[in-house]
Amino acid sequence: MDKPLFQNIDVDQNNPLTPVESASSPKFKLPKDPKIIALMVMIGLIIILAIIASIISATRKNIPIAKPKTTPTPAVPTITPAEFKNIPTIYLEKFNQIDQEIRTEENFPPPQLNTDIGL
């Protein structure tokens, strides 16, 4: 005696009358075009670099950076060694003195007075 065919109404896919397709998840296929592969590699590299950069910046924020000391601005700017590197030693002192005077600015401003006092 043949068994009666029936459909399970609770499960859509469990219909013995319809051909059952493979229930496995769709497989990821690697694109065969080398240009697309190269592009994907590049994007991946960029993402990795961005993550590394964000990690580094986040860690650097936590490190206390020593602030440079605020020094008063000198009237005579310091002379860089490059300016003197070619000057012979016998003339160095004289050039140094001249430089100091040339760079000297008058820094003794008169007082700002209120001449309306008592008026």
Binding site: Y91, K94, F95, Q97, I98, E101, I102, T104, E106, F108, P110
Partner: peptide, 20 residues
Amino acid sequence: GLVQDEINLRLHTLSLIKNL
């Protein structure tokens, strides 16, 4: 006075340059 003071300074520099 301020101007003369700076004139004196520049003259002094000029004499240094002349000596050099």
